[in-house]
């Protein structure tokens, strides 16, 4: 898996990756702010190309990290290298019927799983740092932060039951 990057004057930055199966993937961060992604199958001559906005590229990036459960649930994981590679994951979930009508306190989210709810989106309104007595409704999207193990526990013990 060879990765090379090069700065092309007037165009932008190019990243080219050759996979083990000899397919080629190249990503160009253009000066316009858009991103062109080329994929070239081994033995093929003409690549297929997609042009993405920065936002679309980030979305694609989080899909490729393998963190997405469903289309409307996604997560990002990042490492804070200054704190001996502390890895933090932020994940979104959609509130189902089983949890609706209960508050954060009632569910004992932090005590049971270690996960913290940092934001909730209901319709077109967002609540940042919801209070402990915040009551969920079905269809709310919540944003949870924690280690990936904690989030798995949260998903298994609280969101699903």
């Amino acid at each position: 898996m060879a990765l090379r990057s090069i700065n092309l004057p007037g165009i932008g930055t190019k990243y080219e990756l050759e996979t083990e199966k000899n397919d080629t993937i190249a990503v160009f961060f253009l000066k316009s702010g858009n991103i062109q992604m080329y994929t070239l199958q081994n033995g093929c001559q003409t690549p297929s190309v997609a042009e993405l906005s920065a936002q679309e590229a980030r979305r694609l990036g989080s899909i490729l990290t393998g963190a997405i459960m469903e289309a409307d649930q996604e997560s990002v994981e990042f490492a804070v290298s200054a704190l001996s590679d502390l890895r933090i994951t932020i994940h979104t979930y959609v509130v189902r019927k089983s949890v609706a009508g209960k508050s954060i306190e009632e569910l004992q989210i932090r005590a049971k799983t270690g996960v913290t709810i940092i934001a909730i989106s209901r319709g077109d309104k967002n609540v940042i740092n919801p209070p402990a007595d915040f009551v969920f409704q079905e269809g709310d999207t919540l944003v949870a932060i924690g280690e990936s193990d904690q989030l798995k526990r949260f998903e298994r013990d609280i969101m699903v039951t």
């Binding site: 165009i11 190019k14 080629t24 190249a26 160009f28 253009l30 062109q36 080329y38 070239l40 690549p47 190309v49 042009e51």
Partner: peptide, 8 residues
């Protein structure tokens, strides 16, 4: 090069 998608 960009518009004809020939960067690769």
């Amino acid at each position: 090069l960009i518009e004809n998608r020939k960067l690769l």
